[in-house]
Design a protein around this nucleic acid. Sequence first.
DNA 1: TGTTTTTGTCCGCTATATTGTACATATGAT
DNA 2: ATCATATGTACAATATAGCGGACAAAAACA
Lengths: 261, 261
Amino acid sequence: MDAVQDEAAGKRARGLDRAFEILDFLRQKRQALKPNEIAAQIGAPRSSVYELVNLLLSNGILEFTGGEGRVYLGRKLYFLGAAYENHFDFTRECEAALEQLADETRETAQFCMLDGNKYTVVRMREGARPFRISTDIGQSVPIPWTASGRLLVAHLSDQDILNFIPPQDFRLPGGEWLEPQTFIAEVRQAEREGLFTFNSIVDSFTHCFAVPVRGEEGHAAATLCLVTPRDDGIANRDRYLDCLKKAAAGLEHAPARPRRN
Amino acid sequence: MDAVQDEAAGKRARGLDRAFEILDFLRQKRQALKPNEIAAQIGAPRSSVYELVNLLLSNGILEFTGGEGRVYLGRKLYFLGAAYENHFDFTRECEAALEQLADETRETAQFCMLDGNKYTVVRMREGARPFRISTDIGQSVPIPWTASGRLLVAHLSDQDILNFIPPQDFRLPGGEWLEPQTFIAEVRQAEREGLFTFNSIVDSFTHCFAVPVRGEEGHAAATLCLVTPRDDGIANRDRYLDCLKKAAAGLEHAPARPRRN
DNA sequence: TGTTTTTGTCCGCTATATTGTACATATGAT
DNA sequence: ATCATATGTACAATATAGCGGACAAAAACA
């Protein structure tokens, strides 16, 4: 059923894929779970999950926590993630860019990337506004629901976009159906203009601005976004876009530096 | 040859173990490598490594980077690591503790943990001194080489310690042999006193101070350390230890908070 | 130019990892 | 007390994953 993996049905799953399915599931749940619960909720054989969980535990990829035999992501993953972050050293500059955006606009600023075939907020700086942002950091959101999504898939061909995005993700949170062709048209428009803005699909009171942060290959490796109240956003549109473009330009000079050592 | 895993010789390796061996190896190398190089350097069959690398690439665990087909740790690992960090929310308080230590002592302060059966510096705050610290963040160091190492294994029995630490890690960087029984005696002493200090084994000009940061189970989940010039360290010993204990106490109140959601 | 090394792919064999099933225990409901 | 559910372990069957080795292209070298 999953459009990306799970080729055929009734086949045996590879241990590695199952393992990372477990890890992703724990990340999504954001809490420690018992092996039994994991097996039930991801629809995997219990014996397999127990075997894999024990393997991952002995490698430090998972850890016992929360008692009752519950497990969650382990320290080893933290170390590996830190190594990634260190290599593609975007964190420091990213925080600076968000800081700058927050200062200049007083709005919520986000740094977003793709996580597989989903959109995710990697870092966020809350604005001075009194309302809360609907997406939390690290949560996976369907690409079509977001302004950034238009930019993050713009390097793909129309067909590749359709293959890449799970079909059910075109069902918007309100239940409406976003015609894929409409989405693609917006992608191409965003690509031409180097930005995308719209009234948020996820809620009814925000306006979203997104500009690309281009990586080594020239396409949008990430985006910088502002999430604003609708009237403020529309009133300050040009200024906000200028701020975003300025901040994005500051991020683009050295997306992946060679390593110092 | 690896004392910890690789039970018997001539056996087939499990894919999952090989996969994480690859990931750890890349982390240790801290650079993108070709699959061929990886296979050669970790002593694994080339065909297996190619298969695994491709699997990991398609899962976002590895990424192409650096050209020439080289691969390095992928974005997915960053997300998983961020989820871990978010769950066991030690980062913020940890930075505050290091900041405080740096202010009070002007020396290099480190937050250290075990990574498997090695010691590693998780976060560091450089002091005002003009010399550099010998261990970089994220590098794996044999446990017996470090002051913190005495504290981090103190919850294990003598026999478990010997099983846990690879025998060759008792060979010090200078080539001398540290008798395991000597090490264990120092572990027990550190356990009793709740601290360990010594002239660094790794270099000839620093003195190291370490105190435990106790986790849920009551044993040292991490350590806070100071690395100082020898004469300064010895002159300020009592004050430095007070600072460390104070900072460690500040970290211990909520090692793993329940999650908010 | 010929030779060696590096790099990547392909394929068949077989050791084994995944899985269904059965079993055992604890917990909770009635 | 009885039944049902949740949780973890043990084990055998077989689909397959890991491995060795063959092959080929490209790069390095002589």
